[in-house]
């Protein structure tokens, strides 16, 4: 087997040492620090961005809270205004309906008084007519005209209970 040809060992080991030392120096001095820097920079950038994102989120949340607060305030203001207006409107309406009721009651009262007056007037004119009719009838039946007072008394007696 070529692996056990001891004559090749020195050259293999010498070149292994040379190439490995070169590789080690390149890696330790150049490649690894550079990659480490790139990774660290990226991590920093990510951390920075996360921090600023967190900040923005906090600001946004504060804004949202302020918005909610002002919205709630506006809403309660509006509700108060609506209640105020409703109360005003209803009291106004009540006052108006009371006025109307009073006016109507007054009108009813005048109308009733009018009716009463008309009734008495009518009743009086009926009595006068009855007295006249009674006088004329008596004249025709017995030829004498009864006195105004006597006829009126008789008519009143006759109408007595029905006025």
């Amino acid at each position: 087997m070529p692996q056990f040809d001891i004559a090749t060992f020195p050259s293999q080991i010498i070149w292994l040492a040379i190439s490995f030392v070169v590789l080690y120096i390149l890696m330790a001095r150049v490649a690894l620090p550079r990659i480490g820097n790139v990774l660290a920079e990226r991590q920093d950038k990510i951390d920075d961005n996360l921090a600023s994102a967190e900040e923005m989120r906090a600001t946004a949340q504060a804004d949202a809270e302020a918005y909610d607060k002002s919205l709630a305030l506006a809403r309660s203001d509006a509700r108060a205004a609506i209640q105020e207006t409703a109360r005003e409107v209803s009291s106004d309406a009540q006052a108006k309906s009371e006025q109307l009721g009073q006016r109507l009651a007054a009108q009813i009262k005048t109308a009733e008084a009018e009716i009463e007056r008309a009734k008495t007037a009518a009743r009086a004119s009926i009595r006068d007519a009855a007295v006249g009719v009674a006088q004329a009838a008596t004249q025709r039946l017995i030829g004498t005209t009864p006195s105004e007072q006597a006829t009126a008394a008789a008519v009143d007696r006759a109408l007595g209970g029905r006025s």
Partner: peptide
């Protein structure tokens, strides 16, 4: 008196070092 010949083995070691360095240094 020591045989330090540059052999095919040594050549591939050098190639490996070159490839690794290219990958680790040039790419970054």
């Amino acid at each position: 008196g020591i045989d330090a010949s540059f052999t095919n083995s040594a050549a591939f070691m050098v190639v490996a070092v070159l490839c690794i360095s290219a990958l680790m240094i040039l790419s970054v």
